[in-house]
Simulated scan of single mutants.
Amino acid sequence: MKVIRSKSFTGERAWAALDIANMNGITTRLHWTDQPYKWHVNDGQEVFVVLDGQVRMHYREEGVEREALLEVGDIFYASVGTEHVAHPLGVARILVIEAEGSV
């Protein structure tokens, strides 16, 4: 049993993570960041939920770069092969659900 107060979680570096659960190889992690990540493609699917702050998600579809502004409560789903990068606008806390060991 765990109760996690996401608003109180901070990290010592960008994209610091708190491991919440591993359910048969699917991880749930809480991330704190104030810096962009890097362009990447996950090994599997990814669910990205903004819990605090705002995130400008850049992604590529058929070679065309697009972006979406994600607010608190918004969810970004990256299917296999979706190239993407998250740019927080200030501090953000993000819940990420993905295959264990994914980039």
Rank of each mutant, 00 (worst) to 15 (best):
E83T: 09
Y37V: 07
H58D: 08
K38A: 13
W39C: 09
G53P: 07
E46H: 13
T28G: 09
E67P: 06
T27D: 04
W39K: 08
A92G: 09
L70S: 04
H84V: 01
H84A: 01
T82A: 07
P88K: 06
D43H: 13
G53Y: 06
E46N: 13
D74Q: 06
T82K: 06
A92H: 02
G73H: 05
Q45E: 15
L51W: 06
R66D: 09
D52P: 07
H31N: 07
H31Y: 15
H87G: 05
V50K: 00
L51N: 11
H40V: 07
R56D: 11
R29G: 01
R60K: 14
Q45F: 12
T28D: 02
D74K: 04
Y59P: 01
D34W: 10
G73C: 06
T27S: 05
T28V: 08
I75Y: 00
G63Y: 03
W39M: 07
K38D: 09
R29F: 01
L69C: 02
G44Q: 05
A92D: 04
S79F: 07
R60I: 06
V47G: 10
G81N: 06
V49E: 02
G63C: 03
A92Y: 00
W32Q: 00
V64A: 06
E67I: 05
G63I: 02
V49R: 01
T33L: 01
V49N: 04
V91P: 07
V55E: 08
N42T: 12
I75M: 02
V85K: 15
H84S: 02
V64Q: 08
E65T: 10
A86E: 04
L30Q: 03
A78W: 00
N42M: 14
A68I: 11
T27C: 10
G81R: 05
R29Y: 01
L70E: 02
P88M: 11
D43F: 09
R56P: 05
E62H: 09
L70I: 03
P36I: 09
W32Y: 06
G90E: 04
V64L: 04
L70M: 15
P88R: 08
G73K: 07
Q45D: 12
Q54F: 14
F48G: 00
H40P: 05
V91K: 12
W32K: 00
L70Q: 01
W39Y: 08
R29T: 03
T28A: 15
E83V: 05
V47N: 11
H40G: 10
H31W: 02
E65F: 03
G81M: 04
A68Y: 08
V47P: 05
N42D: 14
K38E: 10
D74N: 15
E67A: 14
Y77Q: 09
V47I: 14
E62M: 08
E46D: 10
Y77F: 15
D34Y: 13
H87R: 08
A92L: 03
V50M: 04
A86T: 07
S79H: 10
Y77N: 10
V80L: 14
F48A: 00
A78K: 00
T27Y: 01
P36D: 13
